[in-house]
């Protein structure tokens, strides 16, 4: 297990450094960026940037300093928000995005897997068709179409739910964003889970379990799920990436001051330090999730440990 973690870290850390190098490089070639001369910035920010990036030193040394600062968790000053560091901005948005993201991922995984399993067991029944029909909608209707329609219907037409704002994390304010964020993922996960469960149900070892006279419920919980959940474990990181990009839109639509919001504002205003800070945060989170899903896989599938 420890070997596996070390092996994965040996891939993840260089990947992260490549991403950071890419971001670092882009900031330098960017027109009107923090490292070009034709800018018109207030002198105090200019000075901060010069300090922050040691612009007088050779390029490779600058990159080294930048890296070590990131390793310490310092993402530098914001390029557009005076008096704020990128850390402060990200920290202010992080709790919101995290609440949103974690609720969405838990709901997608639980509901998606559960619906997929039941649809597979009750294959070709009305329940199966209903789940697959709804998941088709989830796949064909992108979140930026779904979210406004949901808020139009539940928020404005029925008046059940607030359509924007954070309101200190009030549960009612969370419902619409979390639902619109998770629905596409529930759709994908339930389809995946359905087909992998059907595949497992048809496998020889399930026939053995039936021949052993094991009750149906126990066959599903002990023999089927641990095999059929494996594709979902592998999908964990892509799902998170999907939720990250989805949350950028969702935070925009529902007016939530999360990281995604800062990312868009930063992108529109060309706040290079902010955008690269968010990018690095997202990439690190993803690397962590890939590691997590590898560990989970090793726990669930004894065949992995051998390698």
């Amino acid at each position: 297990m420890i070997q596996l973690i070390i092996k994965r870290l040996a891939i993840a850390i260089p990947t992260l450094i490549i991403i950071i190098a890419f971001v670092f490089g882009l900031m330098r070639v960017a027109p009107g960026g923090p490292f070009t001369n034709e800018r018109a910035l207030p002198p105090e920010i200019e000075q901060k940037i010069n300090e922050a990036y040691d612009l007088d030193k050779p390029l490779i040394q600058q990159f080294g300093i930048y890296l070590s600062k990131i390793a310490k968790g310092d993402l530098g000053p914001s390029y557009k928000y005076k008096d704020f560091t990128v850390n402060e901005l990200i920290l202010s948005g992080f709790p919101i995005s995290l609440t949103l993201g974690i609720s969405a991922i838990i709901i997608s995984l639980l509901l998606g897997s559960l619906l997929g399993i039941i649809a597979a067991i009750k294959r070709n029944t009305i329940f199966d068709y209903a789940v697959m029909g709804v998941s088709l909608i989830g796949i064909c209707v992108p979140s930026f179409v779904l979210a406004p329609i949901l808020s139009l219907f539940f928020g404005l037409y029925l008046g059940f739910l607030p359509i924007s704002g954070w309101n200190g994390g009030n549960i009612y304010n969370l419902i619409l964003p979390v639902v619109s964020l998770s629905l596409p993922q529930i759709a994908i996960i339930s389809r995946m889970m359905r087909s992998s469960t059907i595949e497992t149900l048809n496998s020889n070892f399930i026939r053995t379990a039936r021949a052993k006279g094991i009750p149906k419920r126990r066959i599903i919980t002990k023999h089927v799920i641990r095999s059929s959940i494996l594709p979902i474990i592998d999908y964990l990181a892509p799902a998170t990436a999907g939720l990250m990009t989805g949350s950028i839109i969702i935070e925009q639509i529902f007016g939530l001051p999360g990281i995604g919001r800062y990312f868009v504002v930063g992108a529109l205003q060309r706040d290079y330090t902010l955008v690269s800070g968010v990018m690095i945060l997202y990439a690190s989170l993803l690397m962590f999730l890939i590691l997590l899903s590898d560990i989970l896989r090793a726990i669930l599938d004894p065949r992995v440990k051998i390698k």
Partner: peptide
Amino acid sequence: AMPYLIFVIILMVV
């Protein structure tokens, strides 16, 4: 493994 959509956004920004 990269959050590629965010990549595209950065490209568009730069």
